[in-house]
Design a binder for these strands. Sequence first.
DNA 1: TCTCAATTTATCCTC
DNA 2: GAGGATCCAATTGAGA
Length: 460
Amino acid sequence: MASKTLTEYERKRLENIKRNDEMIASLMLQHKAADLSSSIKRLKPQIRPLKRHSPEKNNKAPVVIRRSLRARGIPPDAAAKGSPPPPPSPAKSPSLTIRDASSNAPGKDRRLFETVARMCENAPLSPPKRMSSTDGPLDLRSLKLEPEHVARIISGRIMTVQFFPFVDRRVVAVGSKLGKVSFWDVDRGLDGGDDADDDGVYLYDPHTSPVSGISIQPFSLSKVLTSSYDGFIRSMDVEKETFNMSYSGDDAIYSLSQRPLETNVYFGEGQGGLKVWDERAGKVLSSYSLHEKRINTIDFSSCNANLMATSSTDGTACIWDLRKISNHRPASLRIHQHEKAVHSAYFSPSGSCLATTSIDNRIGILSGDNFMDVSMIRHDNQTGRWLSSFRVIWGWDDSYVFVGNMKRAVDVISTVKKTTKAMESPLMTAIPCRFAAHPYRHGTLASTTSGGQIYMWTSI
DNA sequence: TCTCAATTTATCCTC
DNA sequence: GAGGATCCAATTGAGA
């Protein structure tokens, strides 16, 4: 294929497909060997429905972390001598294998690797598309919550949730306040599973503080970036089976994002700082002071990747033009002022609107030329101390947004009519705070809670 | 003007 | 079922 005819996205995709083919071949060999030595029956996996844990059951919850002695900072001979193990080192090793960070039963990780490898093979040669007028509007009344789409997949408060950009599969990644990262392969059953206890949940422990961001680029599906208040950005590489440190700093990292088609990492650090990190070269490309207080979210416009939106606890949401630098920082195209901290600012699927969420009980919808048309919608955003703050996200077109509701529901707000409707379900027993919309499967919405639960709404 | 204590609020766990 | 513990948010307001 002549490279001249390929877009940058396609070229990166093809490079990855080639690498993934090699990985699949390797995995298949290992898988066959495992099959020979194991007589585990292939059973359809069961996703545990959400229910309150009894104390006894809770002790069995996937909180116990199994890591190597090295990863726990324990000298090899200490265990051999029978001396009591010292407490785990507060700082994790820069270099971790996935096995070191894994809390899963031996061999279980490999199923996740295989799924990722298979999905890489089927990855699309185009980025996710927003809904077109020919798709027709999505009937939000068709979104339902089924018992098999409810699960507790991590302990503690979920801080961030992302879908893998797989076309034909629903796999979510969540990060918790305790520094853990969990993956839920909802469609595990489609493989005809080989383990009765394989619930499709894979738990890892890469950070020592809250996980603030997860990023997965469509052209590099086997690499998952995670950021944390512990000052680390880690890169989970399924091909190399590592969870290595990509970046480390002294300040907490509160937000993480990547531009489309780019491997550089944008993250909010400390009190209002933003850095651009070249992951391949391992160096900081740019460092800016954009806000007076922490940056809660970073997002890029789909129609113009030079436009970046940030939200901050300093009470503002800003749109920056990365092509123009003035006063040693990107030129501010638009500053949207709230009365209190702003917890999110996300561009719409078309890139022509911006939705902001603030503690001041308002949701802002910015549109029009230079985002100068502003609609402020009242909404109860008082989540208090124990819940993750609400963050409005867009659906699959520009006509509505999703946000949590303190009465254990999902509010759907029409950006056109400015009306709010609540999606409720008796299965939803906790308040959904953080959301993710599946990039390819319109109508698949993940909502997560401060108790580690995930509710995946699907369009029927 | 600055510092710091009090307050809010949901969920899990133990009894 | 009641009540305690949680505690890396953010704000408010009293007091120095």
